[in-house]
């Protein structure tokens, strides 16, 4: 016991030792947290759409075969896109609606740049069903557009929500006209 350093010196050394260990554990904890994020982040990202899926994110559609009053569905990103060749009556009807009547106010001019062509993602904004109204015999709802049979949402001739549980208008995808009758969606 004679070899031991005096009492006070020993305790301060132990204290110093203690703070050094605290620092180490803090540093290791911080690095460990960083490492955990570094592991989890790429693992989570593996579930993102893969490169081949992203590469198919746009599709080109020839509109020449769609006559006035007719609508078609095309697949885009695994979902239907409605393309409707609207009649002048339908356009007028859509443009005459005052914005105050809409729960998600948007003018038809913004939604259908080109008037006669209305291009929509055909997925009800409520819970993802596909509204009826594209085929000739389909119910078109109270406002002459689309009607979602799942929970009774009614859309007008501009694809805007007018009645029912859906919170927003039918989504407009990004698209551009490559020429008169060729449209690129996405």
């Amino acid at each position: 016991m004679a070899d031991l350093p005096p009492q006070n010196e020993q305790s301060s050394a132990a204290e110093e030792e203690g703070t050094r260990r605290d620092f180490l554990i803090l540093a290791a904890g911080a690095m460990g947290a960083l490492g955990a994020v570094g592991v989890v982040w790429p693992l989570v990202q593996t579930m993102n759409p893969s490169a081949d899926v992203l590469a198919l994110a746009s599709t080109e559609v020839d509109l020449s075969g769609i006559s006035e009053g007719q609508a078609i569905s095309v697949m885009w990103r695994g979902k239907p896109v409605f393309i409707r060749h609207r009649t002048p009556g339908e356009i007028d009807e859509a443009r005459a609606v005052p914005l105050d009547d809409l729960s998600d106010p948007e003018t038809d001019e913004v939604r259908a740049k080109d008037g006669k062509w209305l291009i929509l993602v055909g997925v009800c904004t409520h819970l993802g069903c596909i509204p009826l109204g594209n085929k000739f015999g389909d119910p078109k709802g109270d406002y002459g557009g689309w009607f979602c049979p799942c929970h009774g949402s009614h859309y007008d001739t501009s694809g805007r929500i007018r009645k029912g549980p859906a919170p927003t208008n039918l989504e407009i995808p990004e698209y551009e006209f490559l020429d008169e009758t060729l449209v690129k969606i996405g």
Partner: peptide, 20 residues
Amino acid sequence: KVLIFLAIFAALAFVIYKRT
């Protein structure tokens, strides 16, 4: 990047282990 990280972390873990 991963190997540099692991090398530093291993060194740190070693010091902690020894001190403990």
